[in-house]
Design a protein around this nucleic acid. Structure first.
Length: 601
RNA sequence: GGUCCUGUGGAGCAGUUGGAGUGCUCGCCGCCCUGUCAAGGCGGAGGUCGCGGGUUCAAGUCCCGUCAGGACCGCCA
């Protein structure tokens, strides 16, 4: 080591010690006769004093990398800085070596206002010198360590699975990699290690985990990047409850250590259907209590066409209450219409209850009978001064999700969210299937299809395993998600381990035997040889680290993140390739053996 | 694929009704300064107003297109 101590570790007890420090010039305060330099390394900052005999420090600039030798002294009385951990001491320099100079900085490296995201990520190596990003990287490392320790204590085996693998249709779009040695054929980057971890169970490992990079070529968001990380877990000979117990243990350990938050009781469970019915979301934010009310029966017989149309078609009408919402201006109420339209809804019907009299008012009120209006407040649990928003649709889930989105927006606008709170829940009993493309229903009379809510390897629960064909839309799965403050932070399922059940599920999904063999043949083959019952879970590691670090984007907990367009501002990736690279990569080659699936019709 | 917001010296912003590249904070360069810690004082440099087109006597400002970043919808088994 070229240094003797870490800058941030120096304390009053070190006074009198001669130290050699290495780090960066965080700030220089040049008084002419005496120069103060805040020297920063990974451990923190300490003040270095250069006296008249050390005027070389005059040439130092921000972010020069320097080596300083000097004596630690307690600061003169009255000059301590209580804001710094090292504020009781300073280092009086006797030697200075500039290890490397720094050009004028393209962004501020101090902890004041941050630059915009694209500048920060273009110069991420400078951004990472700031304390916030630095802490986020350390937090993530610590989170990995906590998970590894806990899983090692429980005899889990950490296994790496391939990142150059087979394209598995269904689900998200794959990133594809051309194969030079077999022109015209492509690897896919894994969307998750799902199939491999199931094969590891067949392989008898019983307890597997991996901090796994996953790749999905879909739209990117604040909480979605083209490559992201899961803490991926799979176990044999377990039930859903065993996975939930393990998941809670991991979450409990993470939040205890990294957020100082103790999860004492069991994390509450609610069913997928309850979550939709009460919160209009399969990842409800339980930090606030606003709930939806179904009004389908209450409003049955109404002549208001918007509601009657949904009710008569066997659909759903519901409402959500905005506490104090009656105080909104006409402009604000109109704003909700724009908000709803931006989400693809026709609008958001509402009734406001007069703050004095409780009298229902608003455009929709004119369309409802006195009877319906009279009992409305009680039916939805509204008080005078509240606003009631309605949604109606022939598709229950569609209306519920609109109200769920309104619920979130209400909480935001009415400031109902306790930002310091942590609220966890499990959402269990998810349906096995949902109809494909519900919007297209009714046209052409084409066959109604089903798609897996979770994934095609999810087991129906005991109640449905022998008869899910009877009513695919109602069949429930052993599938579970863990939710924190309205973010899905993990999810998993009990897997199908019986070939016959798997084939029946594929049948419902419209995946024929030939198709299944082509896409997942290797898994079905494996399942011929004594596959153990198994179940697993995967945690969205970036999201968890984001929540624990208080960030509002997973980019903050990724060392070198990409922009929403999948662009890396630092390296400039992706880039075009040269003609020679293209020729060598085999991009344009034709597969040698044209299998049925590969050949064009 | 769609909607909305943003784009002005190195960074963060302001810029009114269309009237001179105008302003603020920080940074940068030079000088002064012996106890600061967001040091202070004086002086200075630094601009294709994202890009292209249009309207106009005149565009940072209005219109159209486009690019980039962000948020959201679709999508994400």
């Amino acid at each position: 080591m070229i240094r003797s101590h870490q800058s941030g570790a120096l304390r009053a007890g070190d006074a009198g010690t001669t130290v050699t420090l290495a780090g960066w010039v965080a700030r220089r305060r040049d008084h002419g006769g005496v120069i103060f330099v805040d020297l920063r390394d990974a451990s923190g900052v300490v003040q270095v004093v250069f006296r008249e005999d050390m005027q070389v420090a005059h040439a130092l600039r921000n972010e020069y990398c320097v080596l300083v030798t000097g004596e630690v002294r307690t600061r003169p009385a009255g000059n301590e800085n209580p804001d710094l951990p090292t504020g009781a001491v300073e280092v009086v320099a006797t030697a200075l070596e500039v290890l490397s100079e720094a050009a004028p900085l393209p962004l501020p490296v101090d902890d004041g206002d941050a630059a915009s995201d694209d500048v920060r990520y273009r110069y991420r190596y400078l951004d990472l010198r700031r304390s916030g990003p630095h802490k986020a990287m350390k937090l993530r490392s610590r989170a990995n360590q906590i998970a590894r320790n806990l899983l090692a204590d429980r005899d889990f085996v950490e296994v790496e699975t391939p990142t150059l693998t087979r394209s598995t249709p269904e689900g998200a779009r794959d990133f594809l990699v051309p194969v030079r040695l077999q022109p015209g054929t492509w690897y896919a980057l894994p969307q998750s290690p799902q199939l491999f971890k199931q094969l590891l169970m067949v392989g008898g490992l019983e307890r597997y985990y991996q901090i796994a990079r996953c790749y999905r070529d879909e739209g990117f968001r604040a909480d979605r990047q083209p490559e992201f990380t899961q803490l991926d877990i799979e176990m044999s000979f377990v039930t859903q409850d065993d996975i939930i117990e393990l998941g809670e243990a991991i979450v409990r350990a993470l939040w205890s250590d990294l957020a100082g938050h103790e999860i004492t009781a069991d994390i509450p469970k609610l069913t997928w259907h309850d979550a939709l019915a009460r919160y209009g979301s399969d990842k409800p934010d339980l930090r606030y209590s606003v709930e939806l009310t179904e009004l389908t029966d209450y409003l049955r017989g109404t002549e208001f066409r918007v509601f009657a149309g949904a009710i008569d078609a066997g659909g759903y009408v519901g409402a959500v209450v905005m506490p104090g919402g009656a105080a909104q201006t006409r402009k604000e109420l109109d704003g909700w219409q724009d908000w709803a339209k931006a989400r693809g809804a026709r609008g958001l019907a509402y009734v406001v209850l007069d703050a004095e009299t409780g009298e229902p008012k608003g455009p929709v009120a004119k369309n409802l009978t006195a009877e319906h209006l009279g009992g409305l407040a009680d039916a939805v649990g509204a008080k005078p001064g509240d606003a009631v928003f309605f949604a109606a649709s022939t598709e229950r889930r569609e209306a519920q999700e609109l109200l769920g989105a309104a619920r979130i927006e209400i909480a935001k606008r009415a400031k109902l969210v306790d930002e310091s709170a942590w609220s966890f829940c499990w959402v269990v009993d998810a349906p096995m299937f949902e109809p494909t493309d519900p919007d297209a229903g009714g046209t052409g009379g084409g066959a109604k299809g089903w798609t897996a809510v979770h994934h095609p390897f999810t087991s129906p629960n005991r109640e449905w395993i022998d008869r899910f064909e009877e009513s695919p839309g109602e069949a429930l799965a052993y599938a579970y998600d863990i939710v924190c403050n309205g973010n899905e932070i993990g999810g998993g399922s009990v897997r199908i381990h019986r070939g016959d059940v798997q084939r029946r599920v594929f049948d419902i999904l419209g995946i024929g035997a030939e198709d299944a063999a082509d896409k997942f043949g290797f898994l079905l083959e494996a399942f011929k040889y004594g596959p153990p019952p198994h179940a697993g879970i995967a945690f969205g590691w970036d999201r968890i680290c984001m929540l624990l670090s208080g960030a509002d984007s997973i980019r903050e907990v990724i060392a070198f993140p990409k922009t929403g367009g999948g662009f890396d501002p630092l390296t400039g990736a992706p880039t075009p390739i040269t003609a020679q690279q293209r020729a060598e990569a085999g991009v344009d080659g034709k597969p040698k053996t044209a299998s049925e699936s590969g050949a064009k019709a």
